[in-house]
Structures are given as structure tokens and as C-alpha cells.
């Protein structure tokens, strides 16, 4: 399956697109180099690999940047899972027949989507964390999960509502309970429509996770800031950090693309 999608990818990519891409890349590099030159910046690229990893007689050991990447991966994957669950639960609550449930869900959504994530992170860090007595990591995961969960819930809701109501009528008329209807009839169909927007949400989550560096969680961005504070390798480190995020988000899109093909292959 991955082999065929890779083939498609190359077939679709025309020569013109490759040319344009290289041109843009060259222009970007020129701008960076020129900017550095004007500031009298001397490059120290040779020092960068050491911050990524070291290979010696003890074998491979991850440098601060890769350690940061590891933590970013841990934070985003746990948050993704939690955001998905929160999103689904909130969507079901909003579509439920309970007025209290619907109202609670709406209050959560309004607050979550109408305040800056950074402020939310601070609120969790300075107010909620001491009350619940949780660490910085848990605080970061909690804040990100709740924030992204609000967006995920709107995606779930739209997906669920896009399923024709005849599907509900059929499952009700067969005596299925509401939950059985969701579980066996509605959600399996909705998930196919939900995949693409959910992927972009996952990518947002990866990018937003950089904000938890503000509460000194040593993920990728925080590690970058720490190295720069020590070494003043501003250009090199931010470039590498940006590149790592790019690889990560592109990888998520690729996996999602393959997954989507699989899902659509069935039925």
C-alpha cells in the first residue's frame, strides 16, 4: 500500500512543481545568508550535529534537540489521544437530548475556543496545577488536550451530522439503542469524513505544543531556546528546530493519507 501511494505521489509531482520548489528554496537560503551576513553573523553548522546526537564508543546517544523531540512526541501523542476522546465525548454531549449536557458542552467550547492558548496554559500552570498538585508535563498535556479537544469536537459533530438521518431511522427501527447506533452505524461512516480535518487538527496540535515551552517543559522548542541562550547559535538552531517540526508534520500527513486510502478501500 505505501509503495503505490508513493508512486502516485511522484507521478502527480510534475517537473514544474519541482522547479518552483527549488527556486523558492534557493531564494529562502539567499535571504537567510544575506541576513546573517549583514548582521556580521558567522555560521557554526559544524556544531549542530552535536546537539542532535553523538556517536562514540558508548554508541548512539541523543543530544538535547532529539531529547526535546522525544518529549514533543510524547506530549503530542498523549494529547492527541486525550483530545480525540474529549472531542468525541463533547460532540456526543452536544448532540444528546440532555439540555444540561448540551449547555455544559457549549460553555466548554466557548471558553476553550475564544481565549488564547497561551493564556490557557498559564491559567492551568498557575491556578489549576497547584490545586490538583500536578507537574509541568501533566499540566502541558491537560492544557493542550482541552484546547484541541474543543476543535476536535466540532469536527466530530460535523462528521456525525453529515450522516443521513435515514441511517439513524434504520438503526432505531431495528431496535438498536442510541449507543449501539453510534458505535455500529454512525461513527464507522463518520470516521471516513472526519479523517482529513482531524489530520489538520493533529498537525495544529504538534505546532501548538511549542507553546508549552513557556512553562519550562523541555520539549523541542524549549531545548532550542536553552541551547541558544548558552551558545547564541540563533540561526542554526531555529532552522534545525523548524526543519524537525516540518518533517514531523509532513510525516503525520503522509500516514493520514495512507490511512484514508485504506478506509476508503473498504465498502
Amino acid at each position: 500500500m505505501p509503495a503505490t501511494s508513493l508512486k502516485n505521489f511522484f507521478r502527480l509531482t510534475t517537473l514544474r512543481d519541482i522547479g518552483l520548489f527549488l527556486l523558492t528554496l534557493a531564494a529562502f537560503l539567499w535571504l537567510v545568508l544575506r541576513g546573517a551576513e549583514q548582521m556580521g553573523y558567522t555560521w557554526h553548522w559544524q556544531r549542530i550535529p552535536g546537539y542532535l546526537f553523538t556517536l562514540d564508543e558508548d554508541g548512539f546517544s541523543a543530544g538535547p534537540l532529539l531529547q526535546g523531540l522525544g518529549l514533543t512526541l510524547v506530549i503530542t501523542s498523549i494529547s492527541m489521544l486525550c483530545a480525540g476522546l474529549i472531542g468525541l465525548a463533547t460532540a456526543l454531549l452536544r448532540l444528546s437530548s440532555s439540555p444540561i449536557g448540551r449547555q455544559l458542552a457549549r460553555i466548554y467550547l466557548e471558553i476553550s475556543r475564544n481565549t488564547p492558548l497561551l493564556v490557557q496554559i498559564f491559567c492551568f500552570y498557575f491556578i489549576v496545577a497547584p490545586i490538583l498538585d500536578i507537574g509541568r508535563m501533566s499540566t502541558a498535556v491537560l492544557a493542550l488536550s482541552l484546547f484541541e479537544g474543543a476543535y476536535a469536537s466540532e469536527i466530530f459533530r460535523a462528521g456525525i451530522q453529515s450522516i443521513h438521518r435515514g441511517q439513524w431511522e434504520a438503526s432505531h427501527s431495528l431496535g438498536l439503542t442510541r449507543w449501539q447506533g453510534y458505535r455500529h452505524v454512525i461513527l464507522p461512516q463518520a470516521i471516513r469524513k472526519i479523517m482529513p480535518p482531524l489530520t489538520s487538527q493533529a498537525i495544529s496540535l504538534i505546532k501548538d505544543s511549542a507553546l508549552v515551552s513557556t512553562i519550562a517543559v523541555y520539549e523541542l522548542t524549549m531545548q532550542g531556546r536553552a541551547i541558544i541562550a548558552d551558545t547564541y547559535l540563533t540561526f542554526e538552531i531555529w532552522t534545525v528546530v523548524a526543519a524537525i517540526y516540518l518533517v514531523l508534520t509532513l510525516a503525520v500527513s503522509a500516514v493520514a493519507g495512507i490511512l484514508k486510502q485504506r478506509l476508503q478501500g473498504v465498502g
Binding site: G166, Q167, A170, G267
Partner: peptide
């Protein structure tokens, strides 16, 4: 039902 409403998946 008029529109069958079979489960397409």
C-alpha cells in the same frame, strides 16, 4: 423505508 437506508459500510 422509501430510501432503503441500508448501512453502506
Amino acid at each position: 423505508f422509501q430510501s432503503f437506508n441500508l448501512f453502506p459500510h
